[in-house]
Design a binder for these strands. Structure first.
Lengths: 166, 166
DNA sequence: CTGAGATAATTGAGAAAGTCAACAGTTGAA
DNA sequence: TTCAACTGTTGACTTTCTCAATTATCTCAG
């Protein structure tokens, strides 16, 4: 929205009509859960934009990232960690495998499991993607100081990984 | 790349360290954007559970909440604020209107716009839903102290609403 | 006042994502 | 061995997302 010269013009403007910012004072806008959802929306939108040039989305990027983590995740673990259905992991790994970024490797200890490992091309792709995602993330957090960014990340970590029971 | 310091455990390479918690040390698990997405997943899952008894979801709850805010939002404003397509707002308002929770009111200043206002039953429904959602939210934040919860909410607020000033 | 362009709500279609049940191969234990 | 549980996979189904087109209304230049 281009806030041009008419931003100060009060053309008999009614008092209750101000613009969408007035909704910032709603109860909903003060619920942590809603704010997390909105933050995620903003973040994933930006991330998807920068990832589009690499033909990736946040989903496939997440799988690629974990495949490159050196932690040798199985598909079941990817599903559990990313809160996705195992069948969705199948599709995501299919795509990444088809383009030569990851490989399914049989787990020698449990031949039911597929361990997802990156190829050389996959590692390179991840390096590029991670750089772009991180840059976009910094941009999204530009309202916060470096200290505050660390604070936010640590608080989110504790909430995001708190529910190990249920 | 992943210089996971072997400070806690002496297992330098994790060949098959059981448990999904080992993925907490991945790069992905330290990206704020990913943590926001996971926090939102946890939160909306819990919220949807408690809202199911009232035949609501987070989406319809959000619309109902804003309708009850006294801020007289139009459908277009709801769409913009909730990052939803206007056509999705139509469906959500249709549902809420059909069950008698909200009403479409013509905006006297612009007859193209529908202002969404709650009925008496809608206000009551929102009161019940808000209480349950808040309780679920407190439960989800049980890992944080009251001070930390406020901190988190304020940091999220600044990030979630930062892109509006750009 | 009138016509052109913009905006709000609505509808419908198609793509993407989420959910769920069933199945084959494998594992671990009685 | 036999059986219950688990992993990955497929397919069907539902929900959500995205976008184009339509109608009614508004704004504004001429």
């Amino acid at each position: 929205m281009t806030e041009t010269a008419d931003s100060n013009v009060r053309t008999a403007a009614p008092p209750d009509e101000a613009g969408i910012e007035r909704l910032y004072s709603s109860e909903l806008a003060n619920e942590t859960e809603f704010l997390a959802a909105r933050t995620r929306s903003v973040g994933s939108r930006r991330a998807n934009e920068v990832l589009a040039s690499l033909d990736l989305k946040v989903r496939s990027y997440s799988v690629l990232s974990l495949a490159c983590s050196g932690l040798n995740p199985s598909q079941r673990e990817l599903a559990e960690f990313l809160f996705l259905d195992p069948s969705q992991i199948v599709a995501l790994v299919d795509q990444l495998e088809k383009r030569g970024a990851v490989k399914r490797k049989a787990d020698p200890r449990d031949r039911r499991s597929n361990i997802i490992t990156p190829t050389a091309a996959g590692k390179k792709l991840y390096a590029e993607a991670a750089a772009e995602v991180q840059a976009a993330g910094e941009s999204a957090l530009s309202a916060l100081s470096p200290d505050e960014r660390n604070q936010l990340r640590d608080l989110l970590r504790r909430v995001a990984f708190a529910d190990q029971q249920d």
